[in-house]
Design a protein around this nucleic acid. Structure first.
Lengths: 256, 256
DNA sequence: AGGCGCTTGTGAAGACGTGCACAAATCGCG
DNA sequence: CGCGATTTGTGCACGTCTTCACAAGCGCCT
């Protein structure tokens, strides 16, 4: 399956550890494992079992083991995983050993918040440039960065070696911005605008739509309501009431 | 995922469009179809083919037809789907016929932006209350709403009949807020804090982690880089360069 | 050294999601 | 009225993801 690194020196110095191509589902979970590992490391754990890490990451332990097995064998039977080692390994696989530069386009309501979001900096990214098409916003300083006009994007992208672009514009402007990003050499885009982007092959797009998340929750609310309405003999079956605090059950993740 | 799987699906009372239990993957796409439909309606279309709608929503037409077939048969062969009818149908299934109240907890950087995000109001939701634990922020007015102290959550939740809570606090506070939301009767939570929440059965949680999205993109960047480094005989590697604008290819969605 | 308990890594089976390809249904037109 | 063009709805095969269950490996204790 995977070409195990030689057990002797885990230092991956030598041969380029050609990335195994991981299942997408696994890739999507690795960041969650990484977050959990950092948290565990801070709590003083030097090793952690798959069970413990799975709990911290909110997944099933078998799934976690299979995910990690795709990266190679970095656990010790009878003991667990070395936290520090695993952190390094996952960060390497995710390409976080270099701090990637991110360009943020659209400094409106949301863009403002993203520009100031500390979570990016603390998790491997550097917000390197801010852009907006509105001259009224150009020149504003946020977090030590000056908002530049979007036409300067190509130049700035090269100067700052930007590989990832974040689109936080209104939907109407998003496709144009995407084209500009691609033209400037950006090959990964995170799109917050509620619209479909068309990009050339080789460019990756991920979309985050806040309203969609709420709508999915709304569906489940609707279903829950219609379920408690029918089988429960009482009419307006309102079950939820205070009383006790969250008897911590297992996380009930909705969808993926 | 949802463990509510009644095998025999007790014959649901006939004619009423009682909710069929849709596959989660379908539920996650319905909002996207809805957005595309609104866009098409605005453009004047009265009917739309599966092919057209699929393109507008960025999916494959067979998948779209199968998704819609789960809601019942609302298309006409040889013609397509009636846009207005389909909008109504999807809005009903998603439970958007009633405008759901949303409580937003954590009025920091991100919370501020969410409180002012027009997309919520325009897509079926009403941000009904804002909360924060920091007394310094209590009293601030955003978009016509006053920030209240989080301790008032139970009372406000009932008054405003809140069913959905949005957590935009730091990770350290998120679990406590989730407990408070649950205690106040909230049964759906959208969590922006980078941590795992533990909630009782019957409460649905969806998570949005902005840094994770970037990390997934980073992985693909890393992989693309390591691929063009190895096999490319001669500089076949770097395709992307200015000159031409994005030859619009198909959307290359990464993961889900 | 040997045995015992614990934990990883993985084969196999099942659930789920996707996409093709085509029969069935509908409309418009001659 | 019949025919052809069009488009839906779906059976089927395939690939991906999840989960179980267990052998193999490791450390510790006696």
């Amino acid at each position: 399956m995977s070409q195990h690194r030689h057990p002797g020196a885990p230092g991956r110095a030598g041969a380029v550890p050609a990335l195994p191509d991981l299942p997408e589902a696994t890739v999507a979970r690795l960041p969650e494992y990484l977050r959990a590992l950092h948290q565990l490391a801070e709590a003083g754990h030097e090793t952690i079992s798959s069970e413990g890490l799975a709990t911290a990451a909110g997944v099933n332990s078998a799934k976690l083991r299979k995910d990690l097995s795709h990266l190679g064998s970095y656990g010790t039977r009878g003991v667990g995983y070395d936290v520090a080692l695993l952190v390094d390994q996952i960060e390497f696989v995710l390409g976080l050993t270099q701090r990637r530069g991110v360009a943020l386009v659209g400094i409106g309501n949301l863009g403002h918040a993203l520009a100031g979001y500390a979570g990016f900096a603390s998790r491997g990214f550097r917000v390197a440039a801010l852009f907006d098409a509105d001259p009224a916003r150009v020149g504003e300083e946020i977090n030590g960065l000056i908002v530049r006009h979007v036409d300067e994007l190509p130049r700035a992208a090269v100067e700052e070696s930007i590989a990832i672009g974040v689109i936080a514009t209104p939907a109407a402007a998003a496709q144009r911005v995407a084209d500009q990003l691609v033209a400037a050499g950006v090959t990964s885009i995170l799109n917050f605008a509620p619209c479909v982007l068309s990009v050339p092959e080789g460019v990756d797009v991920r979309k985050v739509d806040l309203a969609i998340e709420l709508q999915i929750l709304s569906f489940h609310e609707h279903r829950k309501a219609s379920l408690t309405a029918l089988p429960a003999t009482g009419g307006a079956g309102f079950t939820a009431l205070p009383g006790g605090l969250a008897a911590p059950g297992t996380q009930e993740a909705v969808g993926t």
